[in-house]
Design a protein around this nucleic acid. Structure first.
Lengths: 133, 133
DNA sequence: CTGGATCCCGAGTGATACTG
DNA sequence: CAGTATCACTCGGGATCCAG
């Protein structure tokens, strides 16, 4: 969707489609990887949620990581941050449509994980020396 | 929203379905996160591939990380390792059907990434102070 | 309440050298 | 060819204290 001009000797660089896939996939994987992004996104998906609510909901996250992760998600346009200049500061975070769409895609992975959860566990037991029998 | 059962003292631990989703997703995300797993999987998906071939194909990976990542993927049953006791040792890795199915799921993420690549880039520019204008 | 600033430790990873 | 071993270093992330 980047052009319609025709007579240009396009230098598309012959990108190997598979390399491109690996790269792009890597970007999105990195975006949601880590312990916290998904948990936070899941909460913010249900509607506006406050900082403290997230702190309790995500469970186990430190204030520092909550802040940092929140900033990154906001930066990528996955979360909107709304500040209400009230006396006790009030800030709400909510997932953007883009983030919700991401979740739809993640569902595919979730399905895969659930379908193969046992297979993987079994594979590990075997690999680890199928000792504890 | 935590129950509807009345008479049974079920010990199902009352797992919040959303927590479960976050957890499972996290497992699979962690499995393929990192710089290397995807690249390796992509190569091994095309057919049996040798250690050295991977070392060149993945490009940028160190021998150490290649070995470690390979071991993890094998452990999870995503890769099969075949050793041919020939004079120069020959080892081949190939993606299992399970891994290929995983790739199908990853495709959903890839689609999302491509659809929103520009939006994200734009969001970042804005967030970063839309300076370099 | 919401977050920024520091300090610090351990896991992850690259570089390099060695081996069956 | 296909790894393994070691070392040094970076960096994520927790703990803690400070601030608007």
């Amino acid at each position: 969707m980047s052009q319609g001009n025709i007579d240009v000797p396009v230098q598309v660089a012959e990108v190997d489609p598979e390399k491109l896939e690996a790269c792009t996939l890597l970007e999105v994987i990195n975006r949601v990887s880590g312990k916290w992004p998904i948990g936070i996104l899941l909460e913010a998906m249900r509607g506006p949620v406050r900082f403290t609510e997230l702190e309790r909901a995500v469970e186990g996250i430190s204030r520092r990581m909550l802040t940092l992760t929140l900033r990154n998600l906001e930066r990528d346009g996955l979360l909107v941050r709304t500040v209400y200049p009230t006396v006790p500061p009030r800030v709400e975070y909510e997932a953007t449509p883009m983030a919700k769409e991401l979740y739809q895609s993640l569902t595919g992975l979730l399905g895969w994980a659930e379908r193969h959860r046992e297979s993987i566990a079994a594979a590990r037991v075997v690999y680890d020396g199928h000792s504890a029998c």
